[in-house]
Design a protein around this nucleic acid. Structure first.
Lengths: 243, 243
DNA sequence: CGATGGATTGAACACTCTCAATACTGGTGG
DNA sequence: CCACCAGTATTGAGAGTGTTCAATCCATCG
């Protein structure tokens, strides 16, 4: 039962690293390559800015998916609701992230504001023209979808194989990586315990208890319920990768 | 809270149906887009055919991802192994399916033959040239990645929210759909119980017990351990969509 | 026909869930 | 400024689903 060498590849920052490499190779003219994000800026004249309050729905499952969104500030959750009222949070979308590159006529899930947010959106038709016009951008879109697929597949592993403690550690590590948390800094968790629970396939009580356990272990400090200090990154990282 | 209308969109046959429709018209011309599959055939001169025996590894996590594979016969499992030896089967790949369109320098997971298989593979470089040459094909690749991402996200819901019985029903329904099972026909399950367990995040014992329960419920008949008769599709479908 | 690997069943246990009570927090109005 | 309120978080106790460990069954194959 070998194969341990590549555990790190599924980590979010590993993906990031790869993109950096692609960037470097693909642009001779500029050392700083353009991200999907950068390219979207050229559509500024077609863009719309919006604010949403905490809890508001940005779009709902089943609506036509005719815009691309870029979150400027705040955090969004993407959820699926089942007929019986169960909710799964597929992912959280942070400031700077994009939504809407899926090839899909209708929204496959609902987007809700976790906290007050600002976003800018572009008509899908414009984005499609932009993408079609430029091979460089097409590559970016492929990378974007690929990295999301890899993330989802990694999350399948988390939900399929890990215990509550490991899931929470995985979540915290990924979140710390995504927010470029410096060691020792306080991790700001915009979402509530219920959101974390629905993302990790646990109950709110188990999330609370698991946080308490990690606190007792000395791995975390909890200054307030939306702030965590990752005191023992090594231990948390080990839990996330699991033994 | 509702939103049930679009449940079908994430179903595999929704995607397949679309491709099938496209394919049916494909003998003509402009109205008739070709599937990704069809396009790959133009690379026949660069292709290699291979056979693998039950249990053999086709490629391993971490190897360079420099080929695209098309499964001609048999079933493949895509798995991730953790350092501690846990295994998660991300998905099963059936005859006719493609592997290798992820934008990724190294294989993110291992591919193993569930049973004896035949496949044909193409160098990634050729495929990339082909894709770059034709906007139609590019759209197909985007659709391919999108539908896989949607599948993965649906599976996240299954693992995050469903009970053992519901997971198994979800699995069987999807598998029946993917193999175009006619009502009343026997479903052929090439993979073993352990594979199903590792795909659904359960143990082999729970898989067995759950199958027994469904048999006792009258939802299934089990002529042999690799054959199932879905006697009550309605009940199974209801479980899969959950209440 | 015995051997091997997979499948099935049983029993005890553990982790997580459920239900319930309590504590906290931020915001509101007196 | 303080008291109250509503929503959220935390903790406790008991129950349940799924796991673990172990034994038995079954099918395939040499």
């Amino acid at each position: 039962m070998p194969i341990s060498l590549s555990a790190a590849r599924n980590e979010p920052n590993a993906t990031k690293g790869r993109f950096a490499a692609i960037h470097a190779a693909s642009d001779r003219d500029a050392i700083a390559p353009l991200t999907l994000n950068d390219h979207l800026r050229t559509l500024q004249s077609h863009s719309t800015r919006h604010h949403y309050r905490r809890g508001e729905t940005i779009f709902a499952e089943g609506e036509p998916a005719d815009r691309v969104y870029k979150i400027l500030a705040g955090t969004v959750r993407l959820c699926r609701y089942s007929a019986g009222g169960r909710r799964h949070i597929t992912d959280f979308v942070l400031a700077g992230d994009l939504i809407g590159f899926l090839e899909c006529a209708d929204q496959p899930m609902t987007a809700e504001a976790v906290e007050d947010i600002t976003l800018i959106s572009y008509p899908r038709s414009c984005v499609d023209r932009l993408v079609a016009s430029n091979p460089e951008i097409r590559t970016r879109v492929l990378c974007h979808l690929s990295s999301h697929l890899l993330e989802a597949q990694h999350q399948l592993f988390v939900l399929g194989c890990q215990s509550a403690k490991e899931r929470l550690a995985s979540f915290l590590m990924r979140f710390a990586d995504r927010t470029d948390l410096a060691p020792g800094e306080t991790l700001d968790l915009p979402m509530g315990r219920q959101d974390i629970a629905d993302h990790l396939g646990m109950t709110i009580e188990t999330v609370c208890r698991t946080i308490s356990m990690l606190k007792n272990d000395g791995a975390l400090a909890v200054p307030s319920s939306h702030e965590l200090v990752l005191k023992d990154m090594r231990a948390l990282r080990a839990l996330a990768v699991e033994n």
